[in-house]
């Protein structure tokens, strides 16, 4: 299925990196339509061992299935061609990271890309994987409540027209679902070159009671921030076109409504 290269120094065959021209696809998929997407009915039956195949699984006697000894904690939403995954892989070798992408060919490119990287660098890139799925529908099928520590929205589709705003990957209802899969104190990173979309994301995240914006000054110690500009294919394209880049980072906080009720009970 995949092209192989002969590696003279190691005298083994390795996979070649996939060529993007074979994986191009129309930019926008309708996230609301009934796509033919395979997804687990619930997180309990998701088999992560096939995605992180070099990690030795343990046997869960309760459910009689093989599972990993740790959870996926970082998710790149709409990962495109996977540039961020590749960057994060080496920065966080001990964390499991998954990219989720709705377009068939694009996700297939990332899958082939990761396979090629793993074969070229045998001990690396074992902690990243890509799944073709619709993150606007199926996140709770993959992740338990509070499982995720970081979530990335890099250069999401802008859907300029007002009628298409409901396709935007951030809105009031979807934020409730993101808040559900995120742990308290988990971080949400957003980056876009479209000012209008930036303002939209900031506005929605700001008014949502379960998210709090992290001021720029507090971000300097986070090594991920600088990678958000250039790691992804879309980010590189924006640089080539001298476009703007707008960053906004939020923290998942506990529910102020519950907190206020607790205070009420104590006093």
């Amino acid at each position: 299925m995949i092209e192989f290269l002969y590696n003279h120094t190691m005298a083994t065959f390795t996979m070649a990196l996939p060529q993007k021209k074979f994986y191009r696809q129309r930019a926008h998929s309708n996230p609301i339509a009934d796509h033919c997407i395979e997804y687990p009915i619930k997180p309990d039956i998701m088999d992560w061992t096939v995605l992180y195949s070099n990690i030795i699984p343990i046997f869960d006697t309760n459910r009689s299935i093989k599972i990993l000894n740790k959870f996926v904690e970082f998710v790149d939403i709409g990962c495109g061609y996977g540039g961020l995954l590749v960057t994060l892989s080496l920065m966080f070798p001990n964390n499991l990271i998954v990219g989720m992408e709705i377009r068939v060919k694009v996700s297939d490119y990332v899958i082939d890309r990761i396979a090629a990287l793993r074969s070229q660098f045998p001990d690396q890139y074992q902690n990243i994987a890509c799944i073709r799925t619709n993150t606007m529908k199926y996140l709770p099928n993959y992740f338990y409540k509070g499982q995720l520590k970081k979530m990335f929205f890099l250069y999401p589709d802008p859907h300029f027209k007002k009628a298409k705003h409901k396709w935007r990957i951030i809105n009031k209802s979807l934020l409730a679902e993101y808040a559900y899969v995120l742990a308290e104190n988990a971080i949400v990173y957003t980056m876009t070159d479209v000012k209008d979309l930036h303002e939209w994301m900031v506005q929605h995240l700001t008014v949502h009671p379960l998210f709090l914006r992290i001021p720029i000054e507090q971000l300097t110690s986070d090594p991920i921030i600088e990678k958000l500009y250039e790691s992804t294919e879309e980010g590189q394209k924006v640089t080539r076109n001298n476009g703007d880049k707008f960053l906004a980072v939020f923290r998942r906080i506990s529910d102020p409504y519950l907190n206020s009720k607790e205070e009420f009970l104590i006093t």
């Binding site: 009915i41 619930k42 997180p43 529908k137 709770p140 099928n141 409540k145 009031k172 934020l175 409730a176 679902e177 808040a179 559900y180 949502h208 009671p209 379960l210 529910d255 409504y257 519950l258």
Partner: peptide, 24 residues
């Protein structure tokens, strides 16, 4: 119409308590 049952808090319904997943 997918297979999902969602349990949210009320009236703070932005806070999802759980999903009941298993219907096919």
């Amino acid at each position: 119409r997918d297979e999902k049952i969602r349990v949210s808090m009320f009236p703070n319904s932005y806070n999802i308590l759980s999903y009941c997943l298993g219907h096919k």
